[in-house]
Every structure is written in C-alpha cells, then in structure tokens.
Design a binder for these strands. Structure first.
Lengths: 198, 198
DNA sequence: GCCAGCCTGGCACCCAGTGCCAGGATGACA
DNA sequence: TGTCATCCTGGCACTGGGTGCCAGGCTGGC
C-alpha cells in the first residue's frame, strides 16, 4: 500500500516527490518560456534527464503538470465545507470553504500570472480545468444539498455549486485581464453580487 | 468567396453539404453504437468511403462532428439577442434569445438522448463543448453589457452571461439524468430561480 | 479545347499517450 | 551476507488524432 500511514517518507517516496517537483519546475519554466503547446513532452524529458515513459508515470498528461493539484484542492474544499456550521447558508459556506482551502504557497507572482494567463488562453488547458471542476462539483453537490431543503435539494445544490464555480471563473478571468492587479476575492464577491442582484 | 451570396448552391456546394451530412450521419450511428472514444476516425471514413484526409477537411476534429453547429448556434443567439427590446433586462433577453435561436429540427429522440448522454460522459466532448461555450460568451458579453449600466458593465455582463450558460448546463445535466423525460426550459427556469433566490 | 479553381487521396510527418518487457536499485528477511 | 520480492526505470512498439504537402482529377468559364 505504499506506506501512506507512516509520517516519515521512505527513501523512495522522498526521491519520487523530489523528482516530481523537479519535472514540474522544469516543465513550468519551459511553458512560460515557449508557451504550453509549443513545448513538447520530449523537450521536458530531455531537460530533466528522464525517459518519456517515466514522465507519464509522474503525470498522467502534459496538462497535469499544471493542473495536477486541482483534484486534491477540490477535496480540500469539500472537507472544509463539511466543517462549516450547519446554519450557514450555501453561498457563505462555499465561500468560506474555498478561502480555507486556498493553498498558502505562493511562488513567483510573475510566473503565476503567466501560468494563469496560459490556462485561460490554451484550449486544452481550459478543457482539463473544466474537467477537474466537474470533479469539484461532484464532491460539493451532496454536501451543499444537506444545507438546502425541499424536494429539489439535489438540483438546487447542483445549480448553486455550478454558479459558485462559474463566479470563480469569472473572477479569475477578470484577474488575468487586469494582469493580476486585482483582489481575486473582491472580484468573486462582485461576480456573485452581479448575478444575484435584483 | 465561395458564393455565399447566391441563393442557389453551386453543384460543388450541394455535393459538399450532402457529403458532410453523410459523414455526420454515419459517424453518429457509429458513436451511438460503439461509443465516442471507441470509434476511430478510420472506422468512420471506411464506412463512408472517403479518405482520412478528407474527413478532416469536413470536420476539424472528431468532436466537431457532434459539436460543429454549436459555433453557428452561438452566433444565432447573439443575433436574436440584438433584436430584443432594449428595455428588457439581461436575464429575460438572454432567455428569449436562446429560445428564439433554438434549432427546430428534431431528429430521432432516442439518438438525441444517447448523444446528449455521450456529451456529458465523454471528457473530450465536454471539453470541446465548453470551448464553444466560451465562444458564445465572447459573442454575448458585449451585447449584454449594453443592457447594464454602471462602470462595471463589462464585468457584470460577463458574470451574467456565464451564469446563464451555467444554468443551461445545469438544466442539461438534469435533463440527461432524467433520461430526457423533463422539460428543458422548465429546468432552466428552476436553475435560475435556485441561484437568484434569497 | 484550354485553363484556373477546387477538391481528392495518399504519403510522410508530429505529438500525446499506453502496454509490455527486461533490467537495475532497494529494503526485508533468513 | 546472500536471496528474494518489490518498485522503479528506460526502451520499444503501437495506437490514434491531426497537419503539411503534393500530384492528380473533376468542374465550370472562356
């Protein structure tokens, strides 16, 4: 079972994690430098010094180098949501859960913006992003449904979760359009206000 | 310019349209029969009797066989939206425009449901679907922005259009989940009500 | 009957992704 | 310390979508 129980990593796991990080760093550098589509897996593998085959053992796809954490982030949001007080309404709970599950690690902001821009401009990346979002939806809908009453709880929850994710996207779009010179949370709140107003 | 002005098609255009329809029909039949991913382009071209190369001249990708009309539909919605009275609020106008631009042609309902289900289950299809939706967004946002006042008109319009499209998706999801035994418009209205309530 | 235009098939590519296999490093255990 | 199972690795071959290019055929106009 690959020792998930032990706090300390085995030598293998440490090496695996390190290599994964190395691949990711090298790939991101190439992506930023030449663009995502113009960078081939062969080029990444060559700079890292591993085989093409091994690359796909660490990342299921080229897109996964950039979007790999997203599935885990979705689960984190779901966990944070479960811990919110029952009295809180869905929108507030979802907002709080997403904030709580935000990753603290901030890399180079310039590279971050470049990567975010890439995600918005590259079709295949956007596509995978939405795929992961679908996973978020599936994880969040049942939890939100518990906070909604009525016979249509599932449907209502589904609509709300989709709308929230959609607002995240709208905010993220605007953030990229503003070259990162904006408060993402404020943009999100404005998006929510825009669709729920009068 | 490929005679878009003349009402009557040239012989070439007629043949082209016919062949395109033939490819589409054959491909859909195979998709429904074996599934989208399990059907290869080679199998499609073999049944139609054309070359692989020609297939990609008629459809930019395998997904385009199913999603080809979507770009045009987006433009149709935009055109319908432009003709709506200025006084109408964005939500009502968008709703009316989408209804007006709905295609009248109904094929075999069984096949329709199968294809809709395929679109929801096949990642690559969903991905392309969202890509086309992005195109809808780009076409609709400026028109909606005219109906919104304030300095944030563009942003507000963007949020609204995204939310509307998101509700379409929620409705479509539910429609597929109900095996097509539901009124899509009613589902859409319920989705909108769900996110704008309270 | 000639010519320009569009379309066709076929070929050679590129690139992402997968299955398979042989071999090397590692840790547990006798 | 030797042995064995485990995990990882590289390499190879293959599939499948998609593209650039080119030679040739059909069409319509002159």
């Amino acid at each position: 079972m690959y020792g998930r129980l032990m706090a300390k990593m085995t030598a293998w796991e440490r090496q695996r994690t390190a290599l994964r990080a190395e691949i990711s760093a090298a790939a991101c550098a190439l992506f930023v430098q030449r663009g995502f589509e113009a960078t081939t897996v062969d080029q990444i593998v060559e700079t890292v010094g591993i085989s093409r085959r091994s690359f796909f053992r660490y990342f299921g796809s080229k897109e996964d180098v950039l979007l790999g954490d997203l599935a885990a982030r979705g689960d984190a949001v779901a966990r944070a949501l479960a811990e919110r007080p029952d009295a809180e309404d869905p929108w507030a709970a979802l907002r709080a859960a997403m904030i709580a599950a935000q990753p603290e690690t901030f890399n180079d902001p310039v590279a971050d913006l470049a990567i975010a821009r890439m995600m918005h401009e590259t079709p295949s990346l956007r596509a995978r992003l939405f795929e992961k979002r679908q996973h978020w939806r599936d994880a969040l809908v049942p939890l939100v449904a518990q906070r909604v009453d009525g016979p249509d709880a599932e449907f209502t929850a589904s609509a709300i979760v989709s709308a929230v994710l959609c607002c995240v996207d709208t905010a993220s779009d605007a953030w990229v359009a503003a070259d990162g010179e904006a408060d993402m949370l404020a943009l999100y709140d404005r998006a929510v206000a825009a669709i729920r107003a009068g």
